[in-house]
């Protein structure tokens, strides 16, 4: 099926006209956030759609618009077509339904989504930190994230010897013996 047909069929199933775009393998369709799970089900089970493979599930932070765009890249081994399913969430309180019941692969992607973007996942069976420590502050992949200087008393940055100015004129000391090695 070509992307336009897929987009049309999804629109029919959801009974709404959807915002579509992209071409070829990068075709996408934007659904309202509250119909996210419904749209995913339709794509998974719909006649002739059969999207059985969730490639990736991720988000893009757009602070200028006050939105977080969530994108799920789908593919069908059976029909050999691809589609990107997208939705736009309110950046202040992003919430989305879990797709784990449709594609089990979504569980881990959603854990990452939750910790990296602060998107709350509804009905996730096991929402724990995936990559970061449990007490890590903030959501690193948001655009306004500032890395803490210290984590549990440990500095998060390496010393930057280059930041010091050159030692004036004359020979500069380098090498393992000068300055003397710490014991």
């Amino acid at each position: 099926m070509n992307p336009t047909e897929i987009q049309e069929r999804l629109g029919q199933r959801l009974g709404a006209s959807l915002e579509c775009g992209g071409a070829g393998a990068d075709a996408f369709v934007i659904v309202p956030a509250e119909r996210w799970l419904e749209a995913a089900r339709a794509l998974r089970e719909g006649e002739g759609l059969d999207f059985d493979y969730l490639r990736s599930l991720t988000a893009v932070d757009r602070p200028a618009e006050g939105k977080i765009d969530v994108a799920a890249h789908l593919f069908s081994y059976k029909r050999r077509h691809a589609l990107t399913l997208k939705t736009r969430l309110d950046r202040a309180a992003p919430r989305i339904a879990s797709l784990g019941a449709v594609w089990p692969a979504a569980h881990w992607h959603e854990r990452e989504l939750w910790e990296m973007f602060g998107v709350a996942i509804e009905n996730h069976p096991d929402l724990r930190h995936l990559l970061l420590p449990e007490d890590w502050p903030g959501h690193p992949l948001r655009k306004d994230y500032a890395m803490p200087e210290r984590y549990q008393g440990i500095p998060t940055r390496r010393p930057a010897p280059l930041a010091e100015p050159a030692a004036g004129t004359g020979p500069t000391n380098t090498g393992p013996k000068n300055p003397p090695e710490a014991p």
Binding site: A25, D26, S56, T84
Partner: peptide, 16 residues
């Protein structure tokens, strides 16, 4: 935006 993927040694390796 685009999603490009290659068949890596561990299978599909994609970049969004």
């Amino acid at each position: 935006e685009t999603y490009a993927c290659v068949e890596g040694a561990r299978g599909e390796l994609g970049v969004y």
